[in-house]
Amino acid sequence: MRRKGTPPAPDPGEQALAARRLREIAFVLPFVGLALITPPIIHIFADSRTVFGIPIIILYIFGVWAALVLSAFRLARRLREEGDR
């Protein structure tokens, strides 16, 4: 399943490198997420500031959460395409 717009005969070496980088991102992603929601980083946002009346810590945690889901979604799509090749 090749998406439209990809060149018909991509360089296999380039492709293997891209697939490897993809797997490395998949590997690192949970650790980035872990670092963002544990001390000390989380303490930066743990105070009573608000944005539009919503406490900043809530925005931060749910924002990181949504970003993780989005990254996982995009990774999953790319990894599945890799798997189909």
Partner: peptide, 16 residues
């Protein structure tokens, strides 16, 4: 939220 963030990390890192 921790109860759901832990599993989120594990599934986001499913490859691992």
């Amino acid at each position: 939220a921790t109860i759901y963030l832990g599993p989120t990390l594990v599934f986001v890192g499913w490859w691992w």
